[in-house]
Write a protein that binds this DNA or RNA. Sequence first.
DNA 1: ACTATCTAGTTCGACATAGAACCAAAGAGG
DNA 2: CCTCTTTGGTTCTATGTCGAACTAGATAGT
Lengths: 149, 149
Amino acid sequence: MSEDNIMAAEVFGFFTEIGIINQLSTAILAKSLPEGVHPSHFSILNHLVRMGDGKPPVRIASAMQVTKNTMTHSLKVLQDRGYIMVAPDPADGRGKLVYLTDSGRRFREQAIVNVSEAFGHIIGPDQLGIMRRIGGDLLQMRKYLDENR
Amino acid sequence: MSEDNIMAAEVFGFFTEIGIINQLSTAILAKSLPEGVHPSHFSILNHLVRMGDGKPPVRIASAMQVTKNTMTHSLKVLQDRGYIMVAPDPADGRGKLVYLTDSGRRFREQAIVNVSEAFGHIIGPDQLGIMRRIGGDLLQMRKYLDENR
DNA sequence: ACTATCTAGTTCGACATAGAACCAAAGAGG
DNA sequence: CCTCTTTGGTTCTATGTCGAACTAGATAGT
């Protein structure tokens, strides 16, 4: 095995680990959400609350790291459920703006409670320790990958 | 915000970071693989080489953390491409055994080269440092989540 | 030995997501 | 102004993944 391949194995192993953790945590999240609400939908609601609503879909898409078409689809689901409202952007004929509805805010509040409880049962002090320990490194890694893709 | 919610925000933020890193790294991997070969397929070939082939699909599925039906689907793709062979398990009438073909081994060798090159361009010494630094913690986290789901 | 339970694999239906092609509006450069 | 390029959003198609239901073979408990 060449030098490059040794490094590749290391890198690949690392990202494999990341992938599995992501999958397991997503599964936990999915199970603690009501039927028909995907983690990505919850994630969008969360983003709208934390970063403020009234943003165009394309901005949300880039923040969530998904493509525009995926965002179109997800927003349609959220709109059908009455959690958001999408209005044309008065300042840009092409654009739209996404607003949370009261129902959406209430739903998100309740979901937070359920999710908190689910993770509270699973995440122990050791795990919390790990998260705090490696959180900074993960953030740095994410930023780097994001900027160099 | 309650205590629980504060912790939830922390936990959720952590897994969000993990999710984004996973997505970005998967995208890099996907782009360095030939058309029609998904990262998960590559992952299966890799697993067969590293852990040895001649294993039943259900074992591979549990190792890769995907469901049986997903594995059935992925194996069909790999089989259609001639990278693996699936034979009935002589010791278990229900079971099958998965074998790598020569073509599959060659393909994987070549893919490793491409993937190594792609990641070599992107991953710098800082990133490698991060990986080595937090690899142990990630492993521990993965095992914990795996055992407590 | 017989039944009940479990396990391996498949099939079906649903859904999130990506990529490509497309339209319409905005912006830039002459 | 007028074109060229860029940008926001949608539509279409393909694919990976999951959950649930199902079949067939294995295993355990009495």
